[in-house]
């Protein structure tokens, strides 16, 4: 199987394998990205974040089903946490997505965080590039859903949707700091339950306090379980997309994405190089000095940094 050609042809196995490679940091993953990057840039990437239990997976599967019915190809990257103890994970988002699992033109990939803290996996960004190159029109990135620190999705997606459920009003105050600022739209899911209006009002009142720059984030009430309001979500995403294009923000975003793509690679490479340096036998004696307080960590870091810079 030629994975690169497979990705460009939209072959499921090739796409799946390429994502595995970038997830594992396999050099072949980098090769694939080099080979297909020129074919990216067409997909529209939507981030979906929000508290656990808000119903993100069900909502994403409904959105995918609706778009697929309109003849669109939809890729979903669903991230779940890895166990900090074993490094293993149980990726359960699929269970809520089985309705679309067999829908043609919908691809779902479960990813574990593998130690990342911002709600995504380090490879999520590159996995999105692979789906993009494979011809997916839409890519949904669903975050872990652990709460306020999950703002990374904003660096991956053009449009970020924040999902909430009624009765989570207390969370809104806590979320204000981070997640309220990244939302381009807010979705009150499970709107058939008590308290939906109250939660919507709370969100709206928080939003009124924030600065707007030509786009006022709408607050939508939907029920993913009962499949109501899903069209309004798609319409709003489309409107936001139009807004980004018309205002020239999309081009700016794309440059930002390119920068972040490079940054991600640099960070990974630098981390690898530095770690190799740290493992050098010569460094061990220096580490012992730091441990016995004859030296300090900053001074040793300076030496290692300059050393590896000279070597590259």
């Amino acid at each position: 199987m030629d994975v690169k050609l497979g990705v460009l042809a939209g072959d499921t196995r090739a796409v799946a394998r390429a994502i595995t490679w970038v997830e594992n940091g396999d050099p072949r993953g980098a090769e694939v990205i080099r080979g297909v990057y020129g074919s990216t840039g067409r997909a529209y990437i939507v981030g979906v974040t929000g508290s656990p239990g808000a119903g993100k997976s069900t909502l994403v599967s409904r959105l995918a089903a609706l778009l697929a019915a309109r003849g669109q190809k939809v890729g979903i990257l669903a991230v779940d946490p890895s166990s900090p103890f074993s490094g293993g994970a149980i990726l359960g988002d699929r269970v809520r997505m089985f309705d679309v699992a067999l829908t043609r033109d919908v691809y779902i990939r479960s990813m574990a965080t593998r130690g990342s803290l911002g709600g995504l996996n380090r490879a999520t960004r590159m996995a999105a590039r692979i789906l993009d190159a494979a011809g997916f029109d839409w890519i949904f990135v669903e975050t872990v859903g652990a709460g306020q620190s999950e703002v990374d999705v904003h660096d991956v997606a053009y449009t970020t949707a924040v999902v909430m459920a009624p009765g989570m009003g207390d969370d809104i105050q806590a979320m204000k700091a981070g997640i309220m600022e990244i939302g381009d739209l807010f979705i009150i899911n499970k709107a058939d339950r008590d308290g939906a209006d109250r939660t919507a009002t709370q969100v709206e009142s928080v939003l009124q306090l924030s600065m707007t720059t030509g786009w006022n984030p709408p607050v939508l009430k939907v029920s993913a379980e009962q499949n109501t309001g899903i069209e309004s979500v798609v319409d709003t995403i489309e409107r936001h997309r139009t807004h980004l294009v018309a205002s020239g923000k999309l081009d700016a975003l794309k440059i930002r994405m390119a920068k972040l793509d490079v940054l991600e690679i640099l960070k990974a490479r630098l981390a690898d190089t530095m770690k190799q340096q740290l493992d050098q036998p010569a460094v061990q004696a220096e580490l012992e000095k730091v441990a016995s307080k004859q030296s300090d960590p900053y001074s040793l870091a300076d030496i290692i940094f300059e050393e590896s810079w000279r070597n590259t």
């Binding site: 149980i90 359960g92 269970v95 809520r96």
Partner: peptide, 10 residues
């Protein structure tokens, strides 16, 4: 009535 959609709970 519709059909019940289970959740994955671990």
């Amino acid at each position: 009535f519709g059909e019940y959609q289970p959740d994955a709970s671990f």
